[in-house]
């Protein structure tokens, strides 16, 4: 019999209050006083214990089953899934980084190869160009020398021709001068020898 209403404690605690008698639970005063005498605290009223124990057993067991079978696995799954996912993602990221590193190394290698090739090519080209230039220069030199020779020959020709002309002119001039001065016509031979001597 648990009919431990609020009047119980009141009666046990504060008997002098007159208004308690108007309470419908007045009938349980004797029981309440007894319960109070056994403890002093409402918690020590042993008559409420079996019911509380029963409901505690029911609710705590239910709660345990709910936590064990439903709630904790849910939370654990969420946490583990996330942990796995993060680990996977980290692995994938490491893979990708490795790949990127490989690509970068490959790129570096290709670049240095290309550079070396370009260098070699440049060296080869220069030698060829130099050879070609030297050949052309030699050709040009040859041509120049040929033309110079030709020019020199022509100059020598012209010079002898000019010199010959000078003698004729000198002879003509001498004759004309003698004619003017003396009125005598000398033959070409003597004039020529004179001009030649005078020279």
């Amino acid at each position: 019999m648990i009919n431990f209403s609020e009047s119980t404690w009141l009666v046990g605690q504060a008997q002098p209050h007159g208004e308690a008698s108007s309470d419908p639970a007045h009938a349980v005063v004797e029981h309440a006083a007894e319960a109070h005498a056994s403890g002093g605290l409402p918690q020590l009223d042993v008559s409420t214990w079996p019911g509380q124990l029963f409901w505690l057993a029911v609710t705590f067991t239910l709660l345990y089953l709910m936590m064990w079978k439903v709630v904790l696995p849910r939370i654990r799954n969420a946490i583990e899934e996330r942990r796995d996912r993060i680990a996977d993602d980290l692995d994938a990221a490491a893979d990708l980084k490795q790949k990127a590193d490989d690509s970068s190394a490959e790129y570096e290698r290709l670049l240095s190869d290309a550079r070396a090739k370009a260098h070699a090519l440049a060296l080869g080209n220069r030698a060829e160009v130099d050879k070609a230039m030297a050949a052309e220069a030699a050709q040009a030199d040859l041509e120049i020398a040929k033309r110079q020779d030709a020019a020199e020959t022509r100059i020598a020709d012209m010079r002898t021709k000019a010199l010959a002309n000078v003698e004729t002119i000198a002879v003509d001039a001498t004759r004309a001068i003698i004619v003017q001065l003396t009125g005598t016509e000398l033959d070409d031979k003597s004039i020529q020898s004179a001009v030649s001597d005078g020279r």
Binding site: I2, G51, Q52, T59, M66
Partner: peptide
């Protein structure tokens, strides 16, 4: 088996928590 205020709050505790 009467549901007392104590039992009621045990039940509430289990329900609220679950």
């Amino acid at each position: 088996l009467t549901i007392t205020n104590s039992a009621l709050f045990m039940i509430l505790t289990t329900l609220v928590t679950s």
